[in-house]
Design a protein around this nucleic acid. Sequence first.
DNA 1: TCTATATTTAACTTAATGGTTAATTAACCG
DNA 2: CGGTTAATTAACCATTAAGTTAAATATAGA
Lengths: 113, 113
Amino acid sequence: MPSDQLSTTFQALADPTRRAILASLTTGEKTVSDLAEPFDMSMPAITKHLKVLEKAKLIERSRQAQYRPCRLHPEPLKDIDKWISEYRKFWEASFDRLEGYLKQLQKKDKNDG
Amino acid sequence: MPSDQLSTTFQALADPTRRAILASLTTGEKTVSDLAEPFDMSMPAITKHLKVLEKAKLIERSRQAQYRPCRLHPEPLKDIDKWISEYRKFWEASFDRLEGYLKQLQKKDKNDG
DNA sequence: TCTATATTTAACTTAATGGTTAATTAACCG
DNA sequence: CGGTTAATTAACCATTAAGTTAAATATAGA
């Protein structure tokens, strides 16, 4: 199991339930039960998903009475974004090399002008 | 095993060997042996990584004599980029601002509900 | 045709994932 | 205290993942 941070982050995101949990947290802090509610899945399964997200530092947790609220911690996504930005030029270039070339030129024009 | 496209793509990227292979392909088409060379890993292991990348449509393959050259197919990265862009505002906001923003959202939620 | 090179497939091992149910811990409340 | 709710832990199961070695396939070229 690769234990580098980027791999851990990608791995955490490679599950639709976990991505849905993150999406749910974009509207604010949620309890585990809140997060579990939309899924046809046992609580322990959700707990495990939360552990994966927590290890990947994509969420943070606190305590309020008997609740363990979760909140979004988006920082690791920066690294994903940075990694992927290295590839942007490859998908921005069209399949047709000429088109890609012209697009590149246009960009250059914009930047220069 | 989640079989949706986004999960498959994230999963394929969740391995440093596979990301290194993609990086290697940014300088052009490569044979399997070329790609394997930097790694202390058997050829079949590389073949498996290539299959993962191919299923994720992150590479494409052809045939030239006894070689099976690989080339980068960056399109699926667009979807990752699109997904992640929804979160950009969350890491661009400072920690304090984010906290405040989320609290406000929570209040709104309560008022609305 | 025979041999060397490039790559894949098969079979196997080990460990990690993603889920389950049952039991446990923690905190609140009457 | 005793009961209820919230969440985690434990133990287990099935599947997938990542690697191995050994054998098979495909092509080139003498």
